[in-house]
Write a protein that binds this DNA or RNA. Structure first.
Lengths: 198, 198
DNA sequence: TAGATTGTTAATCGATTAACAATC
DNA sequence: TAGATTGTTAATCGATTAACAATC
């Protein structure tokens, strides 16, 4: 079993290992821990949990590590997501290519405001048929806070199974729908507080 | 002392309480826990940790709770941040107003590419003088991954005390500089995995 | 007084770290 | 064989949950 905490570190390992791949075939947990500023036992435990195994005195095979991490992160199992709310954040996410690295395609957004529609932005009425046609599993909510709940309900009706909500608002959803709240402002606010402590 | 976990829940309380403020003067931990889908003891512990206190049989004063949360979140102590990397994500964050809620002003971005410069986007050469003049404390990195480390170093030279890095790359920084890594792709990838479990 | 709700103390759970045995 | 490195078992730490006493 891969713990949530471990899962959070996998992309960091992945990025580092991809850089190292061209330089070396094997790498030790000690080296990784030093470079990424983690405990060395933690690195070994993390590697063990994704069923990578190393050889004493040698270390771990870099390519195998990369493969294991990508398997766990599901880079290979593709899925599709849509955005509702084509404001600045919505559009930025739409055009941001980084989700592809994890096997997630985001190519369409929906909005109810006429002048936002066009190109990859479709009218909100087309959400349900689009989701049915493309078997969309993930919905990304970037609408203003007071429209979030309604948007979520529409997504559920459209057959979406998981919602990524970019606001501090708690959504009221039926069982079986996965949700993750992403609060960028809070994240930055947390950093601000770290300044005083340092 | 406010734990990191508690800190993460404060904005959710805040958003909910602001909505309730117009309806009621006092609220019980039971109600809050039910609405936000949290443990009721957890709610009381969280409230206790931000030194809010309630009255048995009555509950907590909503306005006082809001004040306490805002004090802890530092909505009142202002600070300024700059963005380096005026790509899509950088620009979206620049135009996104939500940071203001936590007392953080983000009004300028910097880039090294000539045709991105203009309006609120200044040439990267002006970062250091700008930071000195405006006493900028936070730097937001939205440059491509291979330019992140250099950008971070430039920020440190410019007197920035905390860095918010929107990439999976681990930065190598001197002691005393706070860092927070934000990996949106990973966050979405985590949600994708929850689908299978549900 | 009785009952609802707070607030504290103890138990549980999960993740990290430390110690050390296994192995190439 | 000796030494480096893995991998496991036990100890620690922090956060959540349960039990219950305090109080309005």
């Amino acid at each position: 079993m891969v713990s949530k905490a471990t899962l959070g570190r996998l992309p960091t390992y992945l990025e580092y290992l991809k850089r190292q791949r061209v330089l070396t075939k094997v790498i030790s947990s000690t080296t990784v821990s030093r470079e990424l500023d983690l405990g060395e036992v933690q690195v070994r435990k993390d590697f063990a949990s994704i069923s990578a195994n190393g050889k004493p005195k040698t270390g771990y095979n870099v390519s195998e590590l990369i493969d294991s991490i990508e398997t766990v992160l599901g880079t290979n199992t593709k899925c599709e997501a849509v955005i509702v709310g084509a404001g600045r954040l919505g559009k930025a996410l739409l055009e941001y290519g980084g989700f592809h690295d994890y096997g997630i395609t985001v190519k369409t957004a929906f909005d109810s405001t006429q002048d936002k529609i066009g190109g990859s932005v479709l009218p909100i009425e087309e959400l349900a048929p689009y989701c049915a046609l493309h078997q969309v599993e993930i919905g990304i909510i970037t609408v203003p806070q007071d429209a979030a709940q309604k948007t979520a309900e529409l997504m559920v009706k459209s057959g979406i199974k998981a919602i990524w909500c970019l606001s501090a608002l708690k959504l009221d959803l039926p069982d079986g729908i996965a949700v993750h709240y992403e609060n960028l402002s809070l994240s930055l606010a947390n950093l601000k507080q770290k300044i005083k402590i340092n």
